[in-house]
Design a protein around this nucleic acid. Sequence first.
DNA 1: GCGTTACGGTAACATGCGTTACGGTTAGGG
DNA 2: CCCTAACCGTAACGCATGTTACCGTAACGC
Lengths: 196, 196
Amino acid sequence: MARTADRPAQEALLSRAVWEVLAHQGLERLTIRAVAAAAGCTTGLVMHRFPNRRALLVHARRLLHERTRARVEALEASSATPREALRAVLRQGLSLDDELRTESTVWVGFLAAAVADDELIAQHRVNNQSWRQRITRLVAAAAPDWPAERAAVAASALIALVEGAAALGSGDPAGYPPAAQERMLDDTLAAFGLAG
Amino acid sequence: MARTADRPAQEALLSRAVWEVLAHQGLERLTIRAVAAAAGCTTGLVMHRFPNRRALLVHARRLLHERTRARVEALEASSATPREALRAVLRQGLSLDDELRTESTVWVGFLAAAVADDELIAQHRVNNQSWRQRITRLVAAAAPDWPAERAAVAASALIALVEGAAALGSGDPAGYPPAAQERMLDDTLAAFGLAG
DNA sequence: GCGTTACGGTAACATGCGTTACGGTTAGGG
DNA sequence: CCCTAACCGTAACGCATGTTACCGTAACGC
């Protein structure tokens, strides 16, 4: 054998570098060299870990989903009531601080990149489907007497609201400050009869 | 002088070509050559009409806004009631058919491109502010007895809902078919007490 | 301790990019 | 009727990109 590198750690490092470049320099500057510079290594390491640029993007996309999934499950587990869980899980999808704003910007970037990439668009659909199932389940738990279809439509609406608010908040933080985003979410939950 | 070319018509033709490439090939393939090919001309014409690539994108972005503004004002003028106008104006922001889906995809592409372009991000904010003012005015007209702040928050929530639904619908048309998107909008309007 | 092999840095390659320069063409003004 | 200037197609330039090839280096098995 030879020296043993920590592959998962390096892949995570490079994925974080992809997010960094995507959020602060945009899709057009998302180059192997820019990623390597953001990760503090050379292009040699990048191309040694991934066969090509697309594989790097796909992995970074997958890791982004895993990260939010883990965060969401922790929030769900630590919530006292179904309605509290629903609100907490939806809330973390907004652009409330620098980290969440970066994630939303990266999410928009990946969605834009998916237009020309079959693998990214497939990942987007799979991820969004699991996201919808989760929110639908939380809505059903928060309103047990609702028919399934009503819960599903409300869940879809809440997802669209959060996704749109996050995108608008990442594109115009001053126009959509954290308090305004949370207010939009809380008012909509109240309007649907899913508050507190 | 010399032969007189129809500048506005050519600029519109090239802007439509920008939308075409952006929607079907993505930001990465949005090159001068691809735009020229989509417009059925050579790069010579493109560079003769615009000083550089950024100016072309900025103009296409501006024209997209003008286009939706004109459509929205026609819908507003032909609506019988304020609530009908509110619904019609919000509805055209969804991804209901090929044309609207293309527009949503292009909108996401421009938002992603704006990350690295000060002029595009400034345009996004100006456009979104006028969009918010319009929806806030329509909500206030649809619910005259509401305090201004309530109308403003409801307007922001409806904008986020439509923007998010359009983005999700453009990224997964099968998962968010037109009827589902309209159902989300109608249910949310009803939840806010702004229906028909 | 030594050979082997994974590791990863360096540099070259071909390609495609934005941009520029040039030149043929065409339509108006005098 | 020609002269001039706008029009725009063509082709080149310099540069940055993704990818590949190469090679020195360092750690593990024997």
